[in-house]
Design a protein around this nucleic acid. Structure first.
Lengths: 149, 149
DNA sequence: GCTTGAATCTACAACGACTATAGGTTTTAT
DNA sequence: ATAAAACCTATAGTCGTTGTAGATTCAAGC
């Protein structure tokens, strides 16, 4: 509107919750906005753009720390974008590694689940595979945190 | 050993850190062990088996809550394993959904990164795509949390 | 102008699955 | 006997949110 978007309006336009917007401000990836006399936030079109950028980058798997870097780098349009390229490629590599790992897990789970069809727990393939790694066809060595975000 | 594995020995045999083992005990997925006179934990072969089960299930993407369920169900070997099957399939579906999403993200990141080769920030493809979703070929609608664990 | 209800404010706790630290005690090897 | 390694508890931190409580402000209708 004329004197700025409320936090709720910004939320509706970006699909980002009100709490998350406040969180982004607190950790400094969103700049502070002006406030009304009653201390409510009022945002500009620039804030809207920045929040779109952040959300889009989050959807593409960038961490908030990476986003912070990207935003800093984006502020110097005359510099080389080599560093930006590096961050994007790092993120791509991380996503590719997660993909490979998930493919292995899918394979093993498919094998497990297809072998289990309504028998008794004592004969359950799922429990058996989980109990003994040597019954597992896949070499999914690696810590769970690899697999998470 | 004769009077049980120390927590460090259990850690070495499972690849699970000492802190994590204590954490599992605290939240109740690992049963308590006997203690030495000096209050140190001493584990049995049953503990080793259970920790292997937990770790293996974690590697396959089961949450600790799901593992707790699986362990409870595994205690009743004469019941139907339908519920176990359901948990495994839920997990498989989650992994497949993450996979599809990651494939879209990879595609978009590849496109972004390949278009950016040492120009200036002002012309950087990465920044441009992140700034405007309509420059993005992929429909990766969905919140980041879908994408996370 | 008044009232109501929705939206907003701050501050703080919780989530999941760990990881790390501080400061102390026990065990093991020499 | 001593010293180093391993262990103990308790507590706080990580990441990216989400949820809560209790107070205040805003916008709309009368």
């Amino acid at each position: 509107m004329l004197n700025g978007l409320s936090i709720g309006a910004l939320s509706r336009r970006t699909g980002c919750t009100v709490q998350t917007i406040r969180y982004y401000e607190r950790i400094g990836v969103m700049p502070q906005s002006r406030r009304t006399g009653g201390n409510q936030r009022r945002y500009t079109a620039q804030h809207l753009d920045r929040l779109h950028f952040i959300r889009h980058a989050r959807e593409l798997g960038f961490s908030l720390e990476q986003i912070r870097e990207l935003l800093t780098l984006a502020d110097y349009p005359d510099q080389s974008c080599a560093e930006i390229d590096r961050i994007a490629r790092t993120n791509l590599a991380a996503i590719e590694s997660r993909l490979r790992r998930l493919e292995l897990l899918r394979h093993e789970l498919q094998r497990m689940a297809s072998a289990c069809r309504g028998g008794r727990v004592a004969d359950c393939r799922v429990i058996r595979v989980l109990s003994k790694h040597d019954q597992c066809h896949t070499e999914h060595i690696g810590s769970p945190e690899m697999f998470e975000d």
